[in-house]
Structures are given as structure tokens and as C-alpha cells.
Simulated scan of single mutants.
Amino acid sequence: MRISQKLEYACRAMVQLARHHDGQTLTRLDDLAQREAVSANFLVQILNDLKRSGLIISKRGKAGGYLLAREPREINMQHITMAVEPGMLMPNISEQGESGKSVQEAWGKISKSLDQALKEITLDSLSTQSPMFYI
């Protein structure tokens, strides 16, 4: 499976916001970009998509920044995917030809399974996972 850089960065930014979520404290764009080693210019575009989808709130100004619009347990990977890559979950397969319908049904089944799996993974579960360190 190929995940776009845009979707990857959106997920990483949302996990960062979930890790620092208290419902009030804003996280600055520069802090998000630095923590996740991404371009602030690209990240701001992604954050705008997330804002339009109602997943985050932004405040402008010197003390501005971003925060989750809901609790981390209420936001899942499917929400994020639909905000930045909605076409990923909507297969566009033709029914033409003798095998078209069966191929379309197979991809539809796969898409539904992926959609369900994305719904099961919340920001809360991603933000509370401890990194593993190996010696």
C-alpha cells in the first residue's frame, strides 16, 4: 500500500496534537514541524485541510497555534484520511468487461475493510503508545 506524504504528515501532526491535548493549550506550527521533522510550509497546508474538516482549531497571532477540536479518543485515522485524502477510501473501478463487476466488488470489499480498520485506530491509542528502544 502506498500512503501519500500528505496523509503521513497529517497523521503525525494529529498525534502530536493529541499528545499535548488538554483542550486549551495551543501548539505552534513551528513546534509541530520541528517535532516531526517536516516542512512548516507544507504542514500549514495540511493543517488547513484538517481545520476545514473540523478536526482541529486554529488561532492566529503571536500566541496562536493549533489544537484538537475534539478529544483524542473521538478522532480516528478514518477521519484524518477523509480530511486529506478522501479518494483513498473510494475505489473508482469500472464494471466494464467480463471481469469488471467481480474486480469492482473485490476492491469494494477491500476498501470497506480498510475503512473499518482506520475507524478502530484512534488518536488516543496512537498518542499513548510508548516508543520501543532496542540496545
Rank of each mutant, 00 (worst) to 15 (best):
R28C: 03
R2D: 12
Q116L: 15
I121N: 11
A63F: 05
Q96V: 12
M90L: 11
L123A: 10
V44C: 10
I110K: 09
E98Q: 11
D49W: 04
M88E: 07
F133H: 08
R19P: 05
Q34T: 14
K59G: 09
E105D: 09
Q129H: 11
M1I: 14
T122Q: 10
Y9E: 11
R70K: 04
W107K: 08
E36F: 06
M88K: 07
N92G: 11
Y66S: 01
V44Q: 15
G97F: 08
G64L: 03
L126P: 14
L32R: 04
S127K: 10
D49C: 13
E8T: 08
E74V: 01
K119P: 14
R12D: 06
E8F: 04
H21F: 11
L47V: 06
T128H: 14
K109R: 12
P72D: 02
M88N: 08
L29V: 05
S39G: 06
K119L: 12
R52L: 13
M88S: 09
Y66L: 00
P72E: 00
R12T: 01
S58A: 04
S127Y: 06
K6W: 00
N92Y: 09
S99K: 14
R2H: 11
S53V: 09
L29Q: 00
E120R: 15
A13T: 00
M88Q: 10
C11N: 02
L43D: 08
K59D: 11
L118C: 14
M77C: 06
A13R: 00
T122C: 14
Q104A: 12
D49R: 05
K59V: 10
L43W: 08
Q45F: 13
K112S: 13
E8L: 00
F133K: 06
K109E: 13
G100A: 03
G61N: 00
D124G: 13
S53Q: 12
S130K: 14
E120H: 13
S99C: 09
A37V: 09
L7C: 00
L126Q: 14
L89T: 08
R28W: 00
Q116H: 15
M1Q: 11
E74L: 06
M77L: 06
Y66A: 02
R73K: 04
R70N: 10
E120T: 15
N48G: 12
G97M: 10
M90G: 05
K119S: 15
R60N: 07
T25W: 01
L50C: 06
H79S: 03
E120Q: 15
L55W: 08
E71M: 12
I110L: 14
S58V: 02
A40S: 10
S130F: 08
R73M: 13
